[in-house]
Design a protein around this nucleic acid. Structure first.
Lengths: 226, 226
DNA sequence: CTGAACATGAGAATGATACTCTCGCGACAT
DNA sequence: ATGTCGCGAGAGTATCATTCTCATGTTCAG
């Protein structure tokens, strides 16, 4: 009785078909906006492009843009999530080339560090510019975008814990700490006036490693142990 | 021959006097802008106030504002530096109440963490909002503003190193790592949707502690082969 | 006290940008 | 054929930061 409902099945299918076609067209348009924005970012090295520029380059209209995106924010967010999840995938692949869980973790940290530092060469340099601007206005969404990475690091830490290389427990929060440290250090350490010699990925790794393994001497009051 | 110059001394002094008075007036005006901005920030919990609002509240004019500041960003920068250096002073004082260098460090980390997390209660919550917005546009200045804190942490780490509680070397860079970790973790961990249970200051401290003490178990490959 | 130089106030004008709205066209399903 | 719908073109609005104009103090040497 629930089968045919009031609508004949053929009608549903027909609607479904046209719907699908429409959706396809829409997605293509969206993709064109996305691609154009990506190009602009790569060219200008900033997210300071105007919506108009994106529209012009994609040979579509402002009308259309706002029909598909809630605003510039959403565009950026989409690119941001995409970049982060691709980055995570890249890291995952490279890391799984290692057998040792610690080596995996290390590779992950160092790769994330390199990915996250503003690099004029690579096309993937805008993690930061994105990240910080969004972090101010849409922290929740940023958290969402971070999820793939967070999951990845949790995974590795879990494995390392199972192998006995690091203590267990609080995996997710420790993963979060590591991520944060790596990403933000990457950003600020590449500021010209900041430090004579920027922090190296090696150093970041050592720092995180220590942080993960817990305090070596004693978690409590640290006195010179007699 | 370079002594008397062309100007009689009395003239110089006279000029100096009126100059001083003028400077004083200017400083008072600047201060009114600063205070008004601070109020607005405290009320709105954001740096999104408009210049016009600052001007209105300070009962001065746009004209005057731009005569004293290069733009809104200079105003923010001034407040930012001020806040950070006051925060650093506060921390320094509290930390020096402890004798043990490690306790000092710990107090410093935990206080910085609390200071840096967006706290609607306190009047000093805007470290972050400032920090991130500025970090995008004026990274160098931000680095400058961080200097008092960086110095402070370097100081403590140095002392801890002398006491043998942490390894020596690379003080400044490690201080930088600690600062970064603490401040940014404070920011993102207070995002509502991010984590069920936000990272505690205790956890941050443990993490930094480990990071500072170096990898406890296996220093492994560090033996250079350059 | 007085006049000139200078600082201020009031607020209009400009410029940049995100975002909306109106109109008309052309595709597509029925 | 016809009505719906997505879209292009581009004018229009809103919000800010920033600058400009003009008139009114305010200061200060003489």
């Amino acid at each position: 009785m629930t089968e045919v409902s009031e609508e004949p099945a053929w009608r549903q299918r027909a609607v479904e078909r046209s719907t699908r076609a429409a959706k396809l067209r829409a997605e293509q348009r969206v993709q064109r906006f996305l691609d154009s924005a990506q190009e602009l970012i790569a060219e200008k090295g900033t997210t300071d492009f105007t919506v108009q520029e994106v529209v012009d380059r994609s040979k579509q209209s402002l009308r259309s843009f706002y029909q598909h995106f809630d605003g510039k924010h959403e565009l950026l967010l989409a690119l941001f999530e995409d970049a982060l999840s691709k980055g995570a995938a890249e890291i995952r692949q490279a890391a799984y080339a290692k057998r040792d869980p610690m080596q995996r973790l290390r590779v992950a940290v160092e790769m994330l560090y390199e990915q996250s530092r503003p690099n004029p060469e690579v096309q993937r340099p805008l993690f930061n510019d994105f990240a910080l601007q969004l972090l101010v206005k849409h922290p929740t969404e940023v958290a969402t975008a971070h999820l793939p990475l967070l999951t990845l690091f949790s995974e590795f830490i879990e494995q390392a814990a199972e192998a006995g290389a690091v203590p267990e427990g609080k995996t997710r929060r420790r993963a979060s700490l590591v991520m944060q440290t790596v990403m933000f250090t990457a950003y600020t350490s590449s500021v010209p006036g900041g430090q004579a010699s920027p922090v190296t990925s090696e150093e970041v790794w050592q720092f995180c490693l220590g942080g993960l393994c817990g305090s070596p001497a004693k978690p409590r009051t640290s006195r010179t142990t007699k």
